[in-house]
Amino acid sequence: MDGMADPPAATGLWNWCLDGTLDPGRVRAAVAVAVRRPTIELAGPPVPGAVQCDVWHTEGEFPTVVDCYLAPSDVPESVAARAVAARLDSRCLLPDDSLDPSRHLLITPDGGIRPVHVDVADTDAGPRWTNVRPCTGIDVWCQGGRGGSRPAAAA
């Protein structure tokens, strides 16, 4: 042993999107501060303990997409996302743990976090997130309906 501690274990993948078209370097720097370790571009040379952070742009209300590979297991994803949202003064969407593809968590720059529904459409530029609306738990999106479409009225 050379006296150096092993890097913390990694949990895998985090996928977020941020409102505004943000500079990838600025986003990676915010992630690095939030997780307290270096970040590198996805195609960059490997750095022990670093988070691989791919930042790219698409269309919609949340056009900056952040994919973090080798995310640290000692930092909860929502804690990191809150820190990034605050540092960048940007709203952040991340998937929640439900199986509903339209349901996400919306994190605001002031640290607020709440469940929301959002329409996700595939485009040539990648996914597009639009039409963010609160999750009430009683709306059609939480009752098994398709996001944005209401069931037909009974005859």
Rank of each mutant, 00 (worst) to 15 (best):
D2S: 15
M4D: 09
M4N: 12
M4G: 03
D6Q: 15
P7N: 11
P7V: 06
P8E: 04
A9T: 01
T11F: 10
T11N: 13
W14V: 15
W14C: 14
W14K: 11
N15R: 12
W16A: 15
C17A: 14
C17V: 12
L22H: 03
L22V: 02
P24H: 06
G25Y: 05
R26A: 13
V27L: 04
R28E: 07
R28D: 05
A29G: 08
A30G: 09
V31R: 02
V31E: 01
A34V: 14
R37I: 04
R37V: 05
T39G: 09
T39Q: 09
I40N: 02
I40V: 14
E41F: 04
A43Q: 15
H57C: 07
H57Q: 10
H57N: 09
F62V: 09
P63Q: 13
P63G: 10
T64H: 06
V66E: 07
D67L: 14
C68Y: 04
L70T: 02
P72W: 06
P72V: 00
S73Y: 00
V75S: 00
P76G: 03
E77T: 14
S78N: 15
V79H: 13
A80Y: 01
R82P: 02
A83F: 00
A85N: 09
R87D: 13
D89N: 12
D89K: 08
C92E: 07
C92F: 02
C92R: 07
L93F: 03
D96R: 04
D97H: 11
D100L: 15
S102T: 13
S102R: 09
H104F: 10
L105Y: 09
L105G: 10
L106C: 08
I113L: 13
I113A: 10
I113P: 02
R114A: 14
R114F: 06
P115T: 05
A121C: 07
D122E: 14
T123K: 12
D124V: 12
A125M: 14
G126Q: 08
W129M: 03
W129I: 02
W129L: 11
T130I: 08
N131I: 01
N131M: 00
V132Y: 02
V132F: 02
R133A: 10
C135W: 07
C135E: 04
G137C: 03
I138G: 15
C142G: 11
Q143D: 11
G144P: 01
G145F: 10
R146Y: 13
R150W: 07
P151L: 05
A152G: 11
